[in-house]
Amino acid sequence: MISFSLWDIVRHLCVGAAWTAGLSLVAFALGGAAGLGVLFARISPRRRLSAPAKAYIEFFQDTPLLMQLFLIFFGFGLLGLDISPLLTAAIGLTLFTSAYLAEIWRGCVEAIPKGQWEASDCLAMSSLQRMRFVILPQALRTAIPPTVGFSVQVVKGTAVTSIIGFMEITKTGSMIANATFKPLLVYALAAVFYFIICFPLSALARRVERRLHAACAR
């Protein structure tokens, strides 16, 4: 048996935390960009675009993230492609994030009053111009708090990737726990790491929300 000092445990968890943060960042950035595309398809008047986007969103919202990761991991395997846990995790979380963000943003876009859409139309704007100059700038304000709030879900979602062997906080923690027979200590420390990443995000979401409320009351 290898002996672990407290410092060893923390050191290893630090490395895991870096992977958790990195994976979250990648998933959030790529998922946000893809989510914008899904959003445009989802709210398109053309059913050929909106129907697949709706199915996409519903699939990712109504199946467990773990199943999505399995499908990617073993799906690629079936195609004879060897896919690493890192790539599986990145693809899986990106798709998952894009679906949720598209749906969150759709709510914000559709909450913009009908009069704003009609006024843009009456000024002969194209639908792209209408989105860019009228709808999105207004939707952005209301979208920020739930978007930042959702980033917390993404960080916590990365824990699931431990099951496919990605060495983030949880996977690192479980390996150390097995080696040290101190699961409570190790997992408590792992929880602290998650908290350190997530707390500033949710605090930020609350602050932005309060700020926007104050701006609305102006």
Partner: peptide, 27 residues
Amino acid sequence: VGMVFQQFNLFPHLTAGENVMLAPREV
């Protein structure tokens, strides 16, 4: 054909000047 609505429907995130300038500039 231009239109003016009962509820004004100005773009709230733009100033009066920007409201007027947007469509001539972009369209």
